[in-house]
Structure formats: C-alpha cells, structure tokens
Design a protein around this nucleic acid. Structure first.
Lengths: 138, 138
DNA sequence: CCGGATCCTTGGCGATACTG
DNA sequence: CAGTATCGCCAAGGATCCGG
C-alpha cells in the first residue's frame, strides 16, 4: 500500500496524537499490547491500590474481597512481569510478600489516572446514552 | 466498615486522583464499566480511526483487514450505545452508513490518547521488563 | 453495502484443594 | 501466609451463510 494517510489530530489546545492509519495493522502493536493487559478484570484496581502505597498479598486480598486467590496471584505476576510493580519477599516466619509500584508503574499511572477520572466524571453521560439507545430500539 | 482510607495521590506536580480504597468494591463501578468496554479487542482501534474523520462501514472494514464483519458491526454498535460515536444511514442504493465521533467520544479521546501515547513511548521498556522477568525464572 | 443469525473455538476467570 | 495445580464454566471473538 503506497498511499498513507498521516493525520495530526488537533483539539482546541494541542495536538493529541499523530496516527498513521495504514500502520494500524495491530499485530504486535504497543497499544493493543498495553490495553489487553490492563483491560483485565483486576489490573486497574490493583494498580490503583498500589499507587497509594505498598501492600502485602493478604492486605490486597482483604481490600478486594471478591477476587479469587488465583486471579490475585496471576494479575500481580503479570503486572510484575511488565515492570509496573515490584515484589519483595521478607523471609519472616510465616513468610510475607510486599508489592509496590515501580517508576515505570507510576509513570503509567499518570495518564491512566486521567482516564479513570474521565470515567468517573462522565459515567452518568454514558449511562444516559445507553438508556436512550436501548429505548429507541424498543 | 467504618474506618476508611481516603488518600490524595500526589505526584511532583499535581494531585492525580483521589481514591477511597474501601469503596473500590467495583460492583457497578464506572471505571470497570468503561475499561471493560474499551478493553475490547477493536474498540480503541476504531476510536482512533473515527477520531481522525468520519468513515463508512466498508472503509473501516478495509482499514482493519483482520476484523470480522461481525465484530466490526458489534463493536460499532457498542460504541454507539455508549454515546461515543454516531451512526448515520444514507438512503442511497445500495445503502451506505457513516460513523462519526460525538462530542462525548472526542472528550473521551483526550485522556485516552494520552494513555496511547504513553503505550507507544514505553513499549520498549515494557518488553525489556518482560524479557528480564522471563529470563530470571529460567 | 450493510448487518443479522448461527455454530464453534478459545481463553479469562472462578472454585476448590493442596504445599512450603 | 503466600502461593500452585486442577477442573470447569461462560462470554468474547472468528467463520460462514443468509437477507434487505
């Protein structure tokens, strides 16, 4: 494909994002890669918790009562693997493990928090749109 | 639960997000609600495309060759239902349908674009973290 | 050209039981 | 306390055919 459509998005204040539409093939795409990870059911919740301060495994488990032990372990491992959080084992008896955010994780949490704030601020608008849509199709 | 931990997150510049940990039960949570929607496999991609300019169904289909017709229809309907995009039918022959962003959609795309920019800027760091993690467990 | 209907596969996630 | 291992469900998503 020779012709490429490169568009520089502009809002009223600043360019938002430069996108090459023809390159959005999305095989091994960074955007897809990140979204699919934090799109998991518990990732954002755990990132929010650990953005506040470090927590131990059991603390997180109690804070999120409806998460299964399996998913807590798995989600924490995935976040650790991507470099967003650190895992430190204290050789106490019984052993305890503390999770904390890395610099990369805090860097992610900046733009992520903006999106979460948007979600809270506009939740009513979205729900109203849904009601309108559902009613208009009887 | 009487004792609540309300923390005001602060980076070096500004408060990022005020979170009440004990309220993060996440049943009917706006954050979960939005993330689970745009966390779909194609939502962000279509939002990016339509943030540039309106497109017709067939155009989107050609732009994203690996999406199935079914998922294109379904994702567009979900985005329309949430009020992010508009759908306009032109009674031509054969009929054509054009999709375009609403004001709400553009408002969402602001913070979303910031996150996507972060994803692109830090993709290498994340992939490096993964390699380190995988190698350290042999 | 657009999209609904149907069938099928995959993987995310929960539940439970078991170790160091 | 902090995991691991195993099983099974179910919704997301792909393939294909049909219909206006």
């Amino acid at each position: 494909m020779s012709a490429r459509t490169v568009v520089n998005l502009r809002s009223t204040e600043a360019p938002l994002r430069v996108v090459d539409i023809s390159k959005l093939d999305f095989t091994n795409c960074p955007v897809r890669d990140l979204i699919s990870q934090i799109g998991g059911k518990w990732s954002v919740l755990l990132l929010e918790a650990l953005a506040q301060r470090p927590y131990r495994f059991g603390e997180l488990r109690r804070m999120v009562p409806d998460i299964s032990q399996r998913m807590l372990t798995q989600t924490l491992r995935d976040l650790e693997r991507d470099g967003y959080i650190d895992r430190e084992v204290f050789p106490t008896k019984p052993p305890s493990v503390e999770y904390s955010m890395t610099d990369l994780g805090r860097s992610l949490y900046g733009p992520l928090a903006q999106l979460l704030n948007w979600a809270e601020a506009n939740h009513d608008a979205v729900r109203a749109a849904r009601v309108r849509f559902d009613q208009s199709r009887d």
